[in-house]
Design a protein around this nucleic acid. Structure first.
Lengths: 176, 176
DNA sequence: AATTTCATGTAACCAGTTACATGATTCA
DNA sequence: TGAATCATGTAACTGGTTACATGAAATT
């Protein structure tokens, strides 16, 4: 997802991607060669991206990858999928990645829809956690329940963020 | 870490651990047999835990693992380590896990020290992120900077949580 | 009698990590 | 001229995932 997102903006080589992953805010994605290069070949094999060798004459080849139309369609398709509880619990990073590219690729309405889905799914997950918290045996350890509270707090701040961004996008519309 | 933490409280079998991981708030740790059983054997090989077969007479063996004294020492040692930037960036789950068991195992003072280290390390990471945020090109995409803000917000709520727990522990002392 | 739960495990597969290899080009 | 950077890649190792295997005991 991260690779395809970057290639949507600018065609890049594996080396460029590694730099992008290690230098920018995407640094929590792996930039190791053993991750990037095999991934590029996998995605290319699936016809989602295509590499073209630049300056093969200069004896220092550079393989620049571009999103194919199939890749673009698959990427948009993934961006369009609705937010599940599993996404919230296990793939928050990917949700944020999807959101990062969404406004430009799917437009205002679908980004709003995503954020509303996201915030309500997170909200109901919080409710489930609060319920579990009440049933929790709080005598066993001091730290356990406190760590649990941390998880809930983080989700709350996530909902807060989502609602703020929703308002921001709605304001954008008014100005137009 | 999670396995050893649970075994610190109660000796358990692999099956019990799987149930604990899938049923309780530790469910974001893997409970798959292909993760638990090999891990138990690795940890046992390192002499950190020891398994004893219960009721081998009843034809349904049950291997119950207990923390060894070496394992307990190693666990405490890990809990005692100071909080690094890498822990904050890459191992937040483990930090929370460490915190969960800390009060009972290391006591009040060292838990406070941990939380203060944790909150100041997180605070300076936030400052670094804010600096990066300012330098960020915000014209490329709408979502990118917003997702970045989300990351910062989550860290802020984490610091907020830590400070709250610090006050709570300090109050605990006053009551005694 | 059939289903669920207890209980432990293996095997094929997937994918990431670190370290290494290679060699050209650019910079100090 | 030597170091850093550009640029792509492989190999050994690690460890998790899913699916499967086995079979007893408890429940319905």
């Amino acid at each position: 997802m991260a690779i395809m997102g970057l290639l949507f903006y600018i065609p890049m080589s594996g080396y460029d991607l590694r730099k992008a992953f290690s230098a920018t805010s995407l640094k929590h994605f792996s930039s190791s060669p053993g991750a990037i290069y095999p991934a590029l070949r996998r995605i290319e094999a699936a016809a989602l991206i295509q590499g073209k060798i630049e300056r093969q004459n200069t004896l220092r080849p550079r393989k620049v990858y571009t999103l194919t139309s199939v890749g673009m369609a698959a990427f948009k398709e993934r961006l369009s999928q609705s937010v599940t509880l599993d996404d919230i619990m296990w793939r928050m990073d990917e949700l944020m990645l999807r959101f990062s590219f969404m406004y430009e690729l799917l437009g205002k309405e679908r980004t709003l829809k995503f954020l509303e889905e996201f915030s309500s799914a997170t909200g109901s997950h919080i409710q489930a956690l609060e319920k579990e918290y009440k049933l929790m045996n709080k005598n066993v350890s001091f730290g356990g329940p406190r760590a649990f509270e941390h998880g809930i707090e983080v989700y709350r701040s996530t909902v807060h963020w989502a609602k703020k961004v929703i308002r921001e996008i709605q304001k954008k519309g008014e100005l137009k």
